[in-house]
C-alpha cells in the first residue's frame, strides 16, 4: 500500500515538473510581463479547452517561469445567455495586450501549440529539467 501511494504521488508531482513536455519553456521576459486568460466558468460554448489548458499546462509553465505573472478571469454564465470571450492575452510591461489567442472551440493541446508558435521563448535546457523520485 505504501508503495502505490508513493508512486501515485511522484506521478502527480512529475506531471508538473517533468512529464508535461510542451510548456517546458522560458518565456522572453523583455517582451512579456504577464499572461491573462479570460474564459467562462461553464464548459459550454467551447470553453472547455481553455479550462483544460489551465489545468494541464499552466502549472508547468509557471514552474519553469516562477516570476512570470499568470492571471485568470473566469466569468460566471450559468444561464448561458451571454457571449463570454475566450481569449489568452500576453501583456507587456505597460499592461497592454501584445499577443491575443482565441481559445474558443479549441482543445488544450491545440491552444498550447498555438501559444508556442505565437510567443518568443526558449526551451528549458535539459540539465535544468527536474525529475523527481530518481534518487536511487
Amino acid at each position: 500500500m505504501t508503495k502505490s501511494r508513493v508512486v501515485k504521488q511522484l506521478k502527480n508531482l512529475n506531471k508538473v515538473v517533468y512529464t508535461t513536455k510542451l510548456p517546458q519553456i522560458v518565456i522572453d521576459r523583455t517582451k512579456y510581463e504577464a499572461m491573462k486568460l479570460t474564459f467562462q466558468r461553464q464548459n459550454t460554448n467551447g470553453h472547455m479547452g481553455a479550462r483544460k489548458f489551465w489545468h494541464d499546462y499552466l502549472p508547468t509553465l509557471q514552474y519553469y517561469n516562477p516570476d512570470f505573472r499568470i492571471e485568470l478571469l473566469r466569468i460566471f454564465n450559468s444561464k448561458k445567455n451571454v457571449d463570454v470571450p475566450c481569449i489568452l492575452e500576453m501583456l507587456d510591461t505597460q499592461g497592454q495586450a501584445v499577443e491575443t489567442i482565441d481559445m474558443k472551440g479549441k482543445q488544450s493541446a491545440e491552444i498550447m501549440q498555438e501559444l508556442l508558435k505565437t510567443i518568443d521563448h526558449t526551451q528549458v535546457p535539459k540539465d535544468q529539467i527536474v525529475e523527481l523520485g530518481n534518487k536511487d
Binding site: V16, P59, Y63
Partner: peptide, 10 residues
C-alpha cells in the same frame, strides 16, 4: 514551495 505555487496557478 516552487511546485505548490505552480500548482495553485490561477
Amino acid at each position: 514551495m516552487r511546485i505548490l505555487r505552480a500548482v495553485e496557478v490561477g
